[in-house]
Protein backbone atom coordinates (compact mmCIF):
# COMPACT_ATOMS: atom_id res chain seq x y z
CA UNK A 1 0.00 0.00 0.00
CA UNK A 2 1.29 3.49 -0.82
CA UNK A 3 2.24 5.46 2.20
CA UNK A 4 0.78 8.89 1.42
CA UNK A 5 2.39 10.46 4.45
CA UNK A 6 5.81 9.55 3.05
CA UNK A 7 5.00 11.03 -0.33
CA UNK A 8 3.89 14.24 1.35
CA UNK A 9 7.11 14.48 3.35
CA UNK A 10 8.97 17.78 3.46
CA UNK A 11 11.87 16.31 1.47
CA UNK A 12 9.65 15.54 -1.48
CA UNK A 13 8.13 18.99 -1.18
CA UNK A 14 11.64 20.47 -1.33
CA UNK A 15 12.57 18.43 -4.42
CA UNK A 16 9.35 19.48 -6.10
CA UNK A 17 10.00 23.15 -5.27
CA UNK A 18 13.54 23.01 -6.63
CA UNK A 19 12.24 21.28 -9.73
CA UNK A 20 9.58 23.91 -10.23
CA UNK A 21 12.00 26.79 -9.70
CA UNK A 22 14.51 25.31 -12.14
CA UNK A 23 11.72 24.75 -14.64
CA UNK A 24 10.36 28.28 -14.29
CA UNK A 25 13.80 29.89 -14.49
CA UNK A 26 14.35 28.01 -17.75
CA UNK A 27 10.97 29.10 -19.10
CA UNK A 28 11.26 32.72 -17.91
CA UNK A 29 14.76 33.10 -19.31
CA UNK A 30 16.63 36.35 -18.61
CA UNK A 31 17.03 39.02 -21.28
CA UNK A 32 19.33 38.17 -24.20
CA UNK A 33 22.99 39.09 -23.59
CA UNK A 34 24.83 41.13 -26.21
CA UNK A 35 28.59 41.51 -25.89
CA UNK A 36 30.55 44.64 -26.78
CA UNK A 37 34.30 45.02 -26.38
CA UNK A 38 36.39 48.16 -25.99
CA UNK A 39 39.89 47.92 -27.45
CA UNK A 40 42.26 50.81 -28.28
CA UNK A 41 39.40 53.22 -27.45
CA UNK A 42 37.13 51.67 -30.10
CA UNK A 43 33.93 49.63 -29.72
CA UNK A 44 33.75 46.12 -31.25
CA UNK A 45 31.30 45.67 -32.85
CA UNK A 46 30.49 49.32 -33.39
CA UNK A 47 27.03 48.51 -34.73
CA UNK A 48 24.93 46.21 -32.60
CA UNK A 49 21.61 44.88 -33.84
CA UNK A 50 19.05 43.99 -31.20
CA UNK A 51 15.39 42.99 -31.32
CA UNK A 52 13.05 45.95 -30.76
CA UNK A 53 10.61 46.09 -27.82
CA UNK A 54 12.71 43.74 -25.74
CA UNK A 55 14.91 44.22 -22.71
CA UNK A 56 18.59 43.53 -23.48
CA UNK A 57 21.57 42.89 -21.22
CA UNK A 58 24.69 44.56 -22.64
CA UNK A 59 27.91 42.99 -21.45
CA UNK A 60 30.61 45.60 -22.04
CA UNK A 61 34.19 44.38 -21.69
CA UNK A 62 36.94 46.99 -21.47
CA UNK A 63 40.10 45.35 -22.83
CA UNK A 64 42.08 48.61 -22.52
CA UNK A 65 44.12 49.23 -19.36
CA UNK A 66 42.49 52.69 -19.04
CA UNK A 67 38.91 53.38 -17.87
CA UNK A 68 36.15 54.33 -20.32
CA UNK A 69 32.64 55.60 -19.83
CA UNK A 70 29.83 54.09 -21.87
CA UNK A 71 27.42 56.92 -22.58
CA UNK A 72 24.35 57.41 -24.72
CA UNK A 73 21.97 60.36 -24.73
CA UNK A 74 19.41 58.45 -26.76
CA UNK A 75 19.50 55.41 -24.50
CA UNK A 76 19.82 57.52 -21.33
CA UNK A 77 22.73 55.39 -20.20
CA UNK A 78 26.02 56.29 -18.50
CA UNK A 79 28.51 53.96 -16.82
CA UNK A 80 32.23 53.96 -16.03
CA UNK A 81 34.09 50.77 -16.96
CA UNK A 82 37.45 50.45 -15.23
CA UNK A 83 40.44 49.19 -17.24
CA UNK A 84 40.45 45.42 -17.95
CA UNK A 85 37.01 44.98 -16.35
CA UNK A 86 33.52 44.18 -17.54
CA UNK A 87 30.11 45.56 -16.61
CA UNK A 88 26.48 44.90 -17.38
CA UNK A 89 24.11 47.59 -18.65
CA UNK A 90 20.42 46.88 -19.15
CA UNK A 91 18.75 48.67 -22.08
CA UNK A 92 15.29 48.67 -23.61
CA UNK A 93 12.61 47.76 -24.42
CA UNK A 94 13.40 50.05 -27.37
CA UNK A 95 11.23 51.22 -30.26
CA UNK A 96 12.72 50.35 -33.69
CA UNK A 97 15.45 52.80 -34.62
CA UNK A 98 19.07 53.79 -34.17
CA UNK A 99 20.56 54.72 -30.81
CA UNK A 100 24.11 56.09 -30.94
CA UNK A 101 26.46 55.56 -28.01
CA UNK A 102 30.03 56.69 -27.33
CA UNK A 103 32.88 56.47 -24.87
CA UNK A 104 32.76 59.74 -22.99
CA UNK A 105 36.47 59.63 -22.16
CA UNK A 106 37.47 59.13 -25.82
CA UNK A 107 34.45 60.36 -27.81
CA UNK A 108 36.41 60.95 -31.05
CA UNK A 109 37.24 57.29 -31.56
CA UNK A 110 34.92 55.31 -29.28
CA UNK A 111 31.63 55.50 -31.15
CA UNK A 112 28.93 53.03 -31.95
CA UNK A 113 25.22 52.51 -32.33
CA UNK A 114 22.49 50.13 -31.27
CA UNK A 115 20.02 49.31 -34.03
CA UNK A 116 16.69 48.05 -32.74
CA UNK A 117 15.00 45.95 -35.43
CA UNK A 118 11.40 44.77 -35.36
Amino acid sequence: MINYMKILSWKNFLYLSIGFLTYSSNVIAGPPIIEIEIKDHLFFPSTVEIPANKKIKLLVKNLDPTPEEFESYDLNREKVIAGNRKVIIFIGPLAPGEYPFFGEFYPKTAQGKIVAIE
Binding site: L59, P67, V80, A82, R85, V87, I88, F90
Partner: peptide, 15 residues
Protein backbone atom coordinates in the same frame (compact mmCIF):
# COMPACT_ATOMS: atom_id res chain seq x y z
CA UNK B 1 37.84 50.85 -6.31
CA UNK B 2 35.35 51.53 -9.12
CA UNK B 3 36.30 48.28 -10.88
CA UNK B 4 35.53 46.15 -7.81
CA UNK B 5 32.36 48.08 -6.94
CA UNK B 6 31.09 47.58 -10.50
CA UNK B 7 31.25 43.82 -10.00
CA UNK B 8 28.96 43.87 -6.95
CA UNK B 9 25.33 42.77 -7.34
CA UNK B 10 26.03 40.82 -10.51
CA UNK B 11 27.95 43.64 -12.27
CA UNK B 12 25.54 46.48 -11.49
CA UNK B 13 27.22 47.61 -8.23
CA UNK B 14 28.10 51.02 -9.63
CA UNK B 15 24.44 51.84 -10.30
Amino acid sequence: NMGDVSEWFDYVGQE
